[in-house]
């Protein structure tokens, strides 16, 4: 019994790992369509990964062991998150190990080490990107947690599966002003966390504006594969959270792909229709997100659901 549960949990992780590059490919494809390009195949990300995994890698002579452990840490922490999040079923076998806070803080582990790796090689690009990433993340964190808190108080549970279950039980009654406010706040935070326009440009590879790309600039070959892959899994997990928390109906394998597809289209639309913000305008965006979460909390307390 316990064994099947654990196996199910592992299956979920494999599922996330397998699907993550596809979602990235789909977003790229949709963006290409917006730009009237044919764009690469939606499976291109898989080919990239295989290519990276086959390549030898070049490591900076300044790199210390921090540089070497970071890809491992990114991968294992994102996989652990994958074990805690309800994906295609409400119950998660290992869900008792951590709640929404753990998810947020495991992403923080990833970020912490990525930022260190950015500093490790001594290049100014890495340092600049690390510094900016940490700034953006610091400001995104209160908004993210506050919106999760509001949901948790609505649902009476901070454990993700419990939260999803309660929200699903509420059926249509769940749609309340506070819920909608949280949704908008959450989307903004997800854009920041996944390094999307208007916060960061994922397609840039050598600009002074790059954040995520800057931190992993020195990575190549297999480490790069791990870093990219874990970033994609993180993105998929955040989408999954969005899907399951804000459309908590019909949580099973059949309805999961359409939900994620809708989100991918949404993100691609936002990326294509909005310009990237100047670095010091990003705090304004995140402040709006935080303000919306606070508003959501207050409406929740004053008006109930």
């Amino acid at each position: 019994m316990i064994l099947t549960k654990i196996l199910l949990g592992l299956l979920q992780i494999v599922f996330l790992m397998a699907l993550a590059p596809l979602v990235q490919g789909i977003i790229k494809k949709i963006k290409a369509l917006f730009q009237s390009r044919r764009g690469p195949s939606i499976f291109q990300s898989y080919f990239d990964l295989i290519k990276f995994l086959k390549k030898d890698q070049v490591v900076s002579e300044q790199a210390s062991w921090i540089f070497h452990i970071t890809p491992y840490i990114c991968m294992i922490s994102v996989l652990t998150v994958g074990a805690l999040v309800p994906v295609i079923g409400v119950s998660v076998p290992l869900g008792f190990a951590g709640d929404a806070l753990v998810v947020v803080y495991l992403f923080a582990v990833m970020r912490f080490f990525m930022a260190l790796a950015g500093l490790d090689t001594g290049s100014a690009f890495g340092g600049m990107a690390s510094s900016r990433e940490m700034m953006v993340a610091s400001l995104a964190e209160p908004a993210l947690l506050l919106s999760l808190f509001t949901l948790a108080l609505t649902a009476g549970s901070l454990n993700l599966s419990g939260m999803v279950q309660k929200l699903a039980d509420l059926k249509i009654a769940v749609i309340s002003p506070s819920y909608l406010l949280v949704f908008v706040a959450f989307v903004m935070v997800v854009l920041a966390e996944t390094g999307r326009i208007p916060v960061d440009n994922p397609t840039t590879h050598l600009e002074l504006t790059m954040i995520h790309e800057g931190m992993i600039l020195e990575y190549s070959g297999r480490y790069l594969a791990l870093m990219e892959w874990s970033a994609w899994i993180k993105q998929l997990i955040l989408f999954t959270l969005l899907a399951n928390l804000f459309a908590p109906w019909e949580i099973h394998l059949l309805w999961y792909p359409p939900k994620i597809l809708v989100l991918a289209i949404l993100v691609a639309c936002i990326e294509s229709s909005v310009a990237k913000l100047r670095l010091f305008r990003i705090p304004d965006l995140l402040a709006v997100s935080t303000a919306l979460s606070i508003l959501a909390l207050i409406t929740l307390v004053l008006k109930g659901l």
């Binding site: 912490f112 510094s131 993340a137 610091s138 993210l144 506050l146 808190f149 108080l153």
Partner: peptide, 20 residues
Amino acid sequence: PLVGAILALTGALAATCFVK
């Protein structure tokens, strides 16, 4: 919960500080 958000901000800034 608002204090919780402050704690979140604190935690994130502490991480930033220790990356530095």
